[in-house]
């Protein structure tokens, strides 16, 4: 049975490699029952989106400095 610590790492690795069928199943099983890990998974995705937005933003202070 997967615990939160393992699930959290898997939720990050999901962004870097395809998970195996077995891993996917264990992860889904865990996140279905665990709201904090569900949130964590969402936030991993948000970090990716935020990073994309960040690099495309030409922030003002970069130019001023």
């Amino acid at each position: 049975m997967m615990n939160c610590k393992q699930a959290a790492q898997m939720l990050s690795e999901k962004l870097d490699r395809p998970l195996s069928a077995k891993e996917k199943m264990a992860l889904t099983l865990h996140t279905t029952m665990c709201p904090p890990c569900r949130l964590f998974g969402k936030q991993m995705g948000s970090l990716r989106d935020l990073s994309k937005a960040y690099i495309r933003s030409n922030d003002q202070h970069d130019k001023k400095s």
Binding site: N3, C4, A8, P36, K42, Q43
Partner: peptide, 28 residues
């Protein structure tokens, strides 16, 4: 620090909802 020995989230460290409307990420 984040996880207990049994691999569960520490109570205080459980991820909280990122409330977008209240914390608009679009600003400088």
């Amino acid at each position: 620090h984040l996880f207990e020995e049994n691999g569960h989230w520490q109570k205080d460290e459980r991820p909280k909802k990122w409330d977008q409307p209240d914390h608009g990420v679009e600003n400088e």
